[in-house]
Amino acid sequence: MYPNNLKYSKEHEWVDLESKKIGITHYAQESLGDVVFVELPEVGAEFEVGDSLGVVESVKAVSDVYSPVSGKVTAVNEALLDNPELINQDPYGEGWIVEMEITGGEEDLLSAEEYERLIKEE
């Protein structure tokens, strides 16, 4: 559920420090339910840790995607515009949201183990 090679934020995003991809966690997609729409940022947009970089909507809920790191967007997953359900089906793979040139904020991210502990408390 929570791959060890990824880092996590308290706001339920994941970051792959190698591929520089960012998405929302299994826990996040499950609590949202069937995702029906994703609002993506523009390539080139810059975000600080905690800024809202996009929005994920399900039938009954809506959630901001908070940037887990600081940096500049280098690519967005346009496949989500037509198939937002990819976030439910494959949150760590096909369901990635943005790719970023990371300039900071990695140090505060959680490990898979720490993140799992966090969601158990919720």
């Binding site: 029906v36 729409f37 909507e57 399900s58 039938v59 009954k60 809920a61 809506v62």
Partner: peptide, 10 residues
């Protein structure tokens, strides 16, 4: 449909 735009959710 598209209710996530609306006040009862957002």
């Amino acid at each position: 449909t598209l209710q996530a735009r609306e006040q009862h959710i957002r």
